[in-house]
Computed example of a mutant assay.
Amino acid sequence: MGNISVRSNKLVLEFRAQGIRCREQTRLLDTPKNRKRMEKLLTIMEAEITLDTFDFCKYFPTSKRVAKFAELQQRKQTAYHHFNSTDAPTLKAFSETWFNEKEIEWRKSHKQSIEGILESHILPAFGKMKISAIKKQDILTFRAGLAKVQTRTKSNLSPSRINHIMTPLRMLLNEAADRYEFTSPWKNIKALKIPRTEVNPFSLDEVECLINTAPDDFKPYYTVRFLTGLRTGEIDGLHWDKVDLDKKQLYIDQSLVKGEMTDAKNDGSHRVIKLTDRVISALAAQMKATKHLGSFVFCKKDGKHFNYQTISRVIWEPMLKRLNLKYRNPYQTRHTYATLLLAAGESPEWIAQQMGHSTTTMLFRVYSRYVPNLTRQDGSAFDRYIKMKGEIHA
């Protein structure tokens, strides 16, 4: 919204047009009549700015900003003629150019993700449209449609997934707008708000039941998942040369992502995990079963790595059904590990290191409500500490 100010007893119009902040002084004295006149003028100008029909030079022909706005208008006209010609690029045509230029920057897994989004969502909706013809309303309608898409489990796409799908579209439109000098329709479109991370950990009793229910050749796999907090890609990509049973350690520096071994998720994910005796026993049993098959700790009978989607559908989901447990994705094994460590009273700093977090912030933000000792708010622990005169020992 624009406003009216005063300088040297003369009225000044303040507004923003085409991304430029303007402050134009008039020759009108600050009187009620002149203020009313300027308010009416400002209302008309703001309407034109909203409709993209505002001509700065018409209102302020002697302003020092005339040249700047004339340049912007010329660029706009050039882009308009280019994109409304018969050979104007479609989004599909431009996406091919953009993809070929960008793929050198991406990991194979990210490249495949972008390809999937383009083929499944963006190109079917916008592929045949001239890139200049895509409007803000088209984008919002497309996003609203994504909210109605159902997954294999009959649930709607999450806000996080919708944002992930929208990102390549935003990049395409903004890059084209910058390259061909037109105004991107991606204006004031905010990403959907992501709800708090869904954490639904299992109790210790449920963990024991799940491990016992697992097929014999998968008992070590789920023991390690539940008692190390490894991410799916980390455990499925775990190699024997990263396992040191004598030192009771795992060395995590890589992950299996869409069938390809890549570096770990981030710097914090490079870590050494201390193993309990139970995990050591599980890995020792697994060593007898699979070490002769190849480099993967957990693998199929031919030595090839697991497909996490297949394992989830064939092993994980039937386990939950047999125990009449509400469905939770396999990643909850990691959340379970964190909550069990916190409940056991382990140091938050040590837990964060085990999990591959750079700080303890996420631990308290995500997991604290599942640990009674951390969520108690009655002051009893502090009261006991005072009564013991600070002599409480761990």
Rank of each mutant, 00 (worst) to 15 (best):
M319A: 06
F298D: 10
G356S: 03
P89Q: 03
L325E: 04
G345D: 06
R143Q: 14
R278L: 10
N174T: 04
Y80G: 00
D241M: 06
M129A: 10
K219N: 10
W240E: 05
D267A: 07
E115P: 01
Q77P: 05
L204Y: 13
K219A: 02
D277M: 06
H393G: 14
L323V: 08
T50M: 13
I315A: 06
T141I: 07
F54A: 13
S120Q: 10
T232R: 14
G145D: 14
I20H: 10
A352V: 01
E317T: 11
R196Q: 13
H239R: 11
K265D: 04
S255M: 01
V12S: 10
E175M: 04
K219P: 10
H81S: 03
N373C: 04
T50D: 14
K130S: 08
T97F: 12
R369S: 00
L42W: 01
A282T: 09
K274H: 15
F382T: 07
N373T: 13
I386N: 13
A264P: 08
I273T: 00
N174Q: 08
K128M: 05
A352Q: 02
F83A: 03
K154G: 08
I189P: 06
M171G: 04
H335A: 01
L28I: 11
E391I: 09
V314W: 14
N174R: 14
